[in-house]
Design a protein around this nucleic acid. Structure first.
Lengths: 215, 215
DNA sequence: CCTTGTGAAATAGTTCACAGCA
DNA sequence: TGCTGTGAACTATTTCACAAGG
């Protein structure tokens, strides 16, 4: 398994994985790259090439065994274990994240929650007590976490991220609207609906047909 | 302004725009591509090349006038007007989206909210009444929208997206964990924290140092 | 000086197209 | 026959490096 696999390939694997889980649940045993591609809007060649970085999972003339490929991807992605996640920030967004049911079944355990606001500290959220943010560094020393989810205001986010990185957290899901600065060995993924919308308005304007002109 | 500007360039412009707004608010009048790059973790050459698709906004030896460049980007991105947004789905996530304060100051107006659940219909959310989902198509005919935000369960999402597309919505922000099928002229951006986490666990596993080994 | 704007070079990523196997 | 796996061809994107302007 080579080490120089393009990042863009890695980021497609979870998409394949999810579809394969669905197919598995539906009872479909074999699937071709063509069918996967149709379902995902990706060319079959792309899917075959992506998978070929990791091994030869298909059978010529048949396709891929869904159960086998699902299991392979689970291993490749490290989803065959559980991951410890800390959440920082319990404003509206953090609260929604804490109570989101989608993390647990995929192996992500929110194991601790922090907030800087004394009003929030001590409240219960998804079965956990909210801790004061200043304990984050100390707690991570005693009970490390794999992943940090940052849901604090923009002006506090870089500090929180620095604390996470110093405590050895190597993966950060950042909901704060800032470009996070981290060392190269730390993974960051940004969730930013406003940036996403602004990338689309460019195209809307080009396309010409805005809503008011159709009213 | 050429029509064949790479999408990846377009999606960086909002990042530049946000930083420039911050700089402007801080009272900084001029900035170099080097400084922008340092702040964003992007090479200066990339920033200059990106901007050069749209015009010549800098001054040699000086850099870019922050106010001027901010205004140019606002126009390019179509942020010099307001956009009509409909939200479908008021579960935990939809509720958080409806009350998010970050959309309005950037020109995005949530003008209507829908949900399929009769319990939710009629409740108030961010100053709006939740309407029954079956009215979505009819309402959009009478009062079009530019953008749809989809925050419904996975199994309902494609139907909602089809309805939006049929009603002439050309931009969709999809929070549902599915690969949306849309015609080529419709923009889709996916917000999917689980996929983001799964892309990072691949690297965590490679890096070796998981949290439990450091405990 | 310093920094932009930009062709040209380099790198990265995608798609083609077909040999080979079930 | 049908579909994978994969070099080779192609396309896209980034970076270089430098002329030119303030």
């Amino acid at each position: 398994m080579p080490l120089d696999i393009p990042d863009v390939v890695i980021d497609r694997l979870p998409v394949y994985y999810r579809l394969l889980c669905d197919l598995h649940a539906t009872g479909i045993a074999v699937v071709s790259s063509q069918e996967l591609g149709d379902a995902l809007g990706i060319t079959p060649a792309q899917i075959r090439k992506d998978l070929s970085y990791f091994g030869r999972f298909g059978k010529q003339g048949r396709g891929y065994a869904v159960a086998r490929l699902t299991e392979e991807l689970r291993q490749i992605l490290g989803l065959d274990r559980r991951w410890r996640v800390v959440l920082i920030g319990v404003g509206r967004l953090g609260t929604a994240i804490a109570s989101y049911r989608g993390f647990d079944p995929q192996g992500f355990d929110i194991v601790a929650i922090y907030d800087a606001n004394p009003e929030a500290v001590g409240t219960q959220l998804g079965g956990l007590t909210v801790h004061p943010a200043e304990l984050l560094a100390r707690d991570l020393d005693e009970r490390p976490a794999d992943i940090g989810i940052v849901a604090v205001p923009a002006d506090a986010a870089q500090d929180v991220i620095d604390t996470l990185v110093r405590a050895g957290v190597h993966a950060i899901l950042n909901y704060a609207p800032i470009a996070a600065h981290v060392p190269p060995h730390v993974q960051v993924r940004q969730i930013d609906p406003v940036l996403a919308l602004q990338g689309m308005t460019y195209h809307l304007r080009r396309y010409g047909a805005d809503a008011s002109s159709r009213a």
